[in-house]
């Protein structure tokens, strides 16, 4: 289908073969290039922050010594991960609205003009990245916290005897101990460079921000399913799938090489 000028009423056998035309079209159409660029930029920001924020957060969380309080914080920060983007999208649209949404009301208190979070292209990207971090950072700490719990306590005791401050201990013991796991997580995330989050964007975007907020997956949905450009939609989807698969295979290989990680 990706190589056809597909017409549903002609079917797979009846439609005209057009070779690589759909793919050429993909790189000639201005909107599809913009979509690829949007996808990359949103995804890369998400990857960076979704690695960095949990990393720092888990170290800080680990410093809490009251177990009850630690549990309490964990319980709250993990929660958004389990709610779907439909629920969160509904909540975000409500609290971010310029018409008296709670966020703009809070900004108004400190004298900031209402911001059109979901209606302005640049702010939309910002909102997408921040809300994704908000949803996922808590769950991202699970892996790091497990690694932190596995650090041999005698290391800290030795450092203590040698008179190292807590900050020095963090710098020279804690961080080096969880760097390897961070590398594994980061490498495995590489496969998502073309996944900017369909669920999230689909539930937050609107025609005002198509230019800067449209990503490959939403673009495919609209061109193929809503506009009926089946052949072209398939080509874009296939393009994405192939690149993603290559990236995933590379990242698995790298994770295996650097950290001896295997999925099964």
């Amino acid at each position: 289908m990706a190589f056809q000028n597909y017409k549903p009423w002609l079917g797979l056998t009846g439609s005209e073969w057009v070779g690589l035309d759909n793919f050429r079209y993909l790189f000639e159409r201005e909107d599809s290039l913009q979509v690829i660029w949007n996808t990359l930029i949103i995804a890369v920001f998400k990857l960076m922050f979704n690695l960095g924020v949990p990393f720092v957060f888990s170290i800080l969380l680990n410093e809490l010594r009251k177990m009850v309080f630690k549990r309490f914080v964990q319980t709250l920060v993990y929660l958004p991960h389990f709610l779907s983007w439909v629920i969160l999208g509904g909540i975000l649209i409500d609290i971010l609205s310029t018409d008296g949404g709670i966020v703009n009301r809070a900004l108004g208190v400190v004298g900031i003009e209402p911001i059109f979070f979901l209606g302005n292209g640049d702010w939309f990207r910002f909102t997408v990245v921040v809300s994704d971090i908000w949803k996922e950072f808590g769950f991202g700490t699970v892996v790091f916290l497990a690694a932190l719990a596995n650090i041999n306590p005698t290391l800290y005791e030795a450092a203590e005897v040698d008179g190292a401050s807590r900050f020095k201990q963090t710098l020279h013991i804690t961080i080096p101990s969880i760097i390897p796991i961070a590398i594994v997580v980061g490498t495995l995330a590489l496969g998502n460079v073309l996944n900017a989050g369909f669920d999230q964007i689909f539930n937050l975007y609107n025609s005002l921000v198509y230019e800067k907020g449209d990503i490959i997956d939403t673009f495919v949905y609209r061109t193929a399913i809503l506009n009926g450009e089946m052949g072209f939609g398939t080509a874009v989807g296939l393009f994405k799938s192939v690149i993603s698969m290559i990236l995933i295979l590379i990242s698995y290989r790298l994770a295996y090489k650097w950290a001896n990680y295997r999925i099964f």
């Binding site: 496969g191 874009v236 989807g237 799938s241």
Partner: peptide, 12 residues
């Protein structure tokens, strides 16, 4: 898990 034909073929 790592490769999908994409939305349209799945739909078909």
């Amino acid at each position: 898990m790592i490769f999908s034909g994409g939305l349209v073929p799945f739909y078909m």
